[in-house]
Amino acid sequence: MINEAYPVFMESLQVIMVLVAAPLLVGWIRMLKCWSQGRTSAGIFQPFRDLSKLFIKETVLAENVSWIFTATPYIVFGATVLAGAIIPILSVDLPLSATADIIALVAIFAIARFFMALAATDIGTAFGGMGASREMMVSSLAEPAVLMSVFTVSLVSSSTSLSHMAHTLTSSPIVLRPSLAFAFLAFVLIAIAETGRIPVDNPSTHLELTMIHEAMILEYSGRHLALIEWSNMMKLFLFASLGIASFFPWGIAGADNIKMLPMALLALALKLALAGIFVVVIETVLAKMRVFRVPEFLGFAFLLATLGMLSHFILE
């Protein structure tokens, strides 16, 4: 009985954790950022307050928008939560994790992005179109690097199923692999671009000339904005967890083993805290780059991923 209920329990635990821990991670990053800039932070729970404030505010729509605009926050949120149910964050043994391998997972994020860009063009102003155009530029340039890095990772475990990849890494002896190191570096660059962090995009800017993601959601308000902000936080959380699951899965709970759960939670919290520190260091050290330097940035990510693939064949 326990054995049958275990995966379902894990699955629901994980979805709840994704929903709750994502704002916490963002709160942690903002807090660290405040400290690094010598400001007093609003505390780790501020994102929750922001979200609840948005949920009770009135929703205002632009005159011209159609049902695409109102449906988009729900679709974006739905796709992100589904992705959260698939990535093995707590345990390698999730019933839904076979729903999509890593390629399908990338495509599930792409659904969210597609609708977000459509909603942006729905408003009928220059901002929305600009945001959509730039966002799709960044994502289309990131795609070859994503695939190459997936290719490299799948060479090691000869699988694209995330659970199986995590399982292979944890159950085999630790070997130094240059291919994984390169794939990880490439993944970091891709994750920065996809989650819209500095130096590709600045999540806290509203300057017309530089915004990418913010330009798309400029007209959202109230609960729609809350849903989009929340899914954005989850996206950051999920990319961090994806990196952890595919490159540093040690500590994740194995199949059918509830005793490993507290350990897994603790390890996850620790790794995410480190990831947060890493993000803050990058955002403090680097400045946002020009939009047309992004191709070079992502070209470098592609180069790293390709070097990973090559070094698997050449050196391993």
Binding site: F77, A100, T160
Partner: peptide
């Protein structure tokens, strides 16, 4: 199954169910 898997019905139903639930 260890190599790669994709379940289109679950993706379809999953997204739909979550959307309806939040809606």
């Amino acid at each position: 199954a260890e190599r790669a898997s994709y379940s289109a019905p679950l993706v379809f139903l999953g997204v739909l169910a979550i959307i309806l639930a939040i809606y």
